[in-house]
Design a protein around this nucleic acid. Structure first.
Length: 729
DNA sequence: TGTTAATAAATTTTT
DNA sequence: TTTATTAACA
């Protein structure tokens, strides 16, 4: 890479970042400002022009995906392997440290990482032990509490006890949780960071070693760092090193997970001589889209301030569609995509974004009906599926008999006659002697407490695990997995379920074997570990995000959160309604409302060429019809950028398609002449909420009978006869 | 002990 | 509506 070629590729601000002098640097990078490219070239510049060696550089990203992306782009530029470079997420890097210094970190060599699901199970179990009622003390809440405290760097003994019952309970759970993790050699996600932090803080030689090693640190998506990550960064930075952070306060959408935008402000105060550079030229969206997004985000207070602009063309106005209900909305989305594709565009350049996952279903149904291939992000990840987690739990138990979370999961899956009562005896015994469930089972087998049936069931189980372990000592990982699945009868167990999901579960288990084959232990920083624990660490840390077939040209569906960092020619944001977006859980407080607005900003700025916003006047949620008004975010867009798409009845609502959308015409009136509601067609009725109206149609029988009524003031609605309390006039 | 019916709850989610 | 968990039954 020559200096001249760099100058050609970058604008002034970008070039300034790439070639910035060796000092602390803050980059405010707006959406679509070429941030990743700049970051990668900055690293390349440091290595090629400033004489840094690759392992003197530490680069932190928000996701594993981003880390992979950065690695591969670096390899492209540097024309060399990035294998020994420290590029990864905070968690991944902490993990690497802990594997290397497990003794100093007070961990067993084969410590295992548990994901939030395992964590929740563990907490549930602890609460049962402590006899805490789950309805009064939701385990989710306890989990949230523990993670929050850990994310702020506090262990149970350093949490401030205000004497309240709540803190008291939470601390009891927290303490017990710490103890059990310690006992089983388990480390949760927050623990990776906290333990890594403590490792460095308590071992000055180790800290000094890394102080000497890392001379340049880069952190991407800095607005999403939490308190502990910030402390981590400060700790690992020495007087001989520089830090460069890249972030955008307007795209901070994870504060509910502990991210603190304030870290950006803190950085400039606490890291001396920080230079600030803004990347404000947007290379992604049209002027219209950008102006609209800017208008929306300008309603937020306390912004760092940024003026995003583009040299791009004006582009088309943003289309706004007011749907009748969510089905109508979905149908509109589908017809929009059909038109888009007819114009010769690719489906993969289209994204349908929504606030919550529940919204995807209706859209999926319509896409399937229209035979439009789609790919859905989020949802259930491969390694989160029950059958995969079962199989992994077996593997974990083989790797570490004292992994209680794994033990609980598989002790009776598939059913082997160890029910709740037996299990409870094991739990009590384990608690009493402060030992793992596994050891408790072994001990119980020596005594005469259990019934004969339960005893032999447990013996069979422990023997089974031991047998698989000894039998597979010389096996490769895939063979071990296959042997385990065979011995443990998981496939048969799922096969018995008989429904259509059984087949896919079995396929997933086969896929797991494939995953073990594809796993290369040398690619990890777990080289010293045997393949099995190395693989387990790998899957715990990397929730695989490549589930669907990436080759077929398909429309992309995801939540607004998941869309961060991506871009599409056509973006359709659905459900832009008060109560849904902004979500009713977030619209009361100013700070959470502002986060919703940032989410809106993120969503809008994903669009390169064309943006659609849709909302539904009626939306069925949790089985009830909800009447929403248009989102305040839409009202914040200056009308000059908007054009309202009028519903074309014949096209978007074909007659006799689905109940809700059937036009009240003569033929539909004939669908059900007789009914058991006591009302007749055309009858005038009064409703407590909607006022007077005329009955247009009936559907269903008995209590489920629905009546379509055209109200004078509230429009046409379908109501359940038995609930509507209609009065005839 | 395992199955089924009743009941309650329900953003966003990476690591 | 869907999903998960729990209580009651076979």
């Amino acid at each position: 890479m020559h200096t001249s070629s760099i100058t050609e590729q970058f604008n002034e601000a970008q070039l300034e970042v790439v070639t910035a002098p060796n000092r602390n640097l803050q980059v405010i990078a707006g959406a679509g400002s070429g941030k990743t490219r700049v970051l990668v070239h900055r690293i390349a510049w440091l290595i090629q022009e400033q004489g840094f060696t690759p392992n003197e550089i530490l680069a932190v990203t928000f996701t594993n995906k981003a880390a992979r992306e950065m690695r591969s782009r670096l390899e492209e530029i540097l024309m060399r392997s990035t294998f020994n470079m420290w590029v990864g997420t905070f968690h991944g890097l902490a993990h690497r440290l802990l594997r290397q210094h497990w003794q100093a970190a007070n961990l067993p060599e084969t410590f295992q990482i548990i994901d939030s699901d395992d964590q929740l199970r563990l907490i549930k179990r602890i609460q049962k032990q402590l006899e805490l009622d789950e309805s009064n003390w939701p385990p989710k809440q306890s989990q949230w509490f523990i993670n929050k405290e850990k994310d702020e760097g506090r262990r149970s003994h350093s949490v401030y006890d205000d004497g309240s019952l709540f803190i008291n309970m939470m601390l009891r759970i927290y303490r017990q949780y710490e103890k059990q993790c310690e006992q089983s050699g388990l480390v949760d996600f927050s623990e990776l960071l906290l333990r890594g932090y403590e490792l460095l803080q308590n071992n000055s030689e180790i800290l000094e070693f890394y102080h000497n090693q890392f001379r340049y640190l880069l952190v991407d998506e800095f607005q999403d760092t939490n308190a502990l990550q910030y402390a981590w960064l400060k700790l690992i930075t020495s007087k001989n090193s520089c830090v460069m952070i890249v972030g955008d306060d307007d795209q901070s959408i994870y504060s509910w997970r502990g991210a603190q935008i304030g870290n950006i402000h803190r950085f400039t105060k606490e890291f001396p001589n920080t230079q600030t550079i803004r990347l404000e030229q947007n290379y992604r969206s049209t002027k219209t889209i950008l102006s609209a997004a800017n208008a929306v985000i300008s309603n937020n207070k306390n912004r760092l301030g940024k003026d995003l602009w583009t040299e791009g063309e004006e582009g088309e106005p943003i289309s706004l569609y007011a749907a009748f209900n969510e089905t109508d909305e979905a149908r509109f989305v589908v017809s929009t995509i059909e038109q888009w594709v007819e114009l010769g565009n690719l489906r993969q350049n289209v994204a349908i974004l929504y606030r919550s996952n529940a919204q995807s279903r209706v859209i999926e149904e319509e896409l399937i009906r229209a035979q439009i291939p789609y790919r859905i992000y989020g949802g259930l990840k491969f390694f989160d599926r029950a059958e995969i987690k079962d199989a992994l739990a077996y593997l974990r138990l083989i790797a570490n008999r004292h992994d209680d979370a794994a033990f609980e999961r598989v002790i009776n899956t598939p059913p082997r006659g160890i029910g709740n009562s037996t299990l409870q005896i094991i739990r009590d015994h384990a608690k009493q002697h402060e030992i793992s469930l596994w050891r408790a089972s072994e001990m119980l087998c020596q005594q005469i407490i259990l019934s004969g049936r339960a005893l032999s069931a447990i013996q069979n189980f422990t023997q089974l695990i031991n047998h698989i372990d000894t039998e597979t000592q010389d096996y490769e990982l895939p063979n071990l997995t296959e042997y385990m699945l065979h011995k443990v009868n998981l496939i048969e167990h799922y096969g018995k379920e008989g429904n259509e999901s059984a087949q896919s579960r079995i396929e997933n288990l086969q896929e797991l074997i494939q995953a073990t084959k594809a796993f290369d232990p040398r690619s990890e920083y777990t080289v010293e570990l045997p393949p099995l624990p190395a693989f387990l660490s790998h899957v715990a840390l990397e929730t695989s995000d490549n589930q669907a077939d990436p080759h077929e040209d398909s429309v992309q569906l995801m939540t607004l959160h998941a869309a961060k960092g991506l871009e599409f020619d056509l973006v359709i944001i659905c459900g832009v309604e008060e109560g849904l977006f902004p979500h009713h859980m977030s619209s009361d407080e100013a700070h959470s409302l502002e986060e919703e607005r940032r989410l809106c900003y993120v969503g809008m700025t994903r669009a390169k060429r064309k943006l659609f916003l849709t909302y539904a006047e009626t939306r069925r949620m949790y089985g009830r019809d909800n009447y929403h008004t248009v989102s305040r975010f839409i009202l914040e867009i200056p009308s000059e950028y908007l054009v309202e798409v009028r519903p074309k009845l014949q096209i978007s609502r074909p007659v006799s398609y689905q109940r809700q959308n059937r036009a009240p015409n003569l033929s539909s009136k004939m669908t059900q002449a007789s009914n058991d509601t006591g009302f007749t067609l055309g009858q005038r009725v009064r409703h407590a909420k909607f006022g007077e109206g005329i009955i247009l149609n009936f559907e269903g029988h008995g209590d489920a009978t629905q009546i379509q009524i055209q109200f004078a003031k509230s429009g046409t609605k379908w109501l359940v006869a038995s609930f509507a309390k209609l009065e005839s006039i």
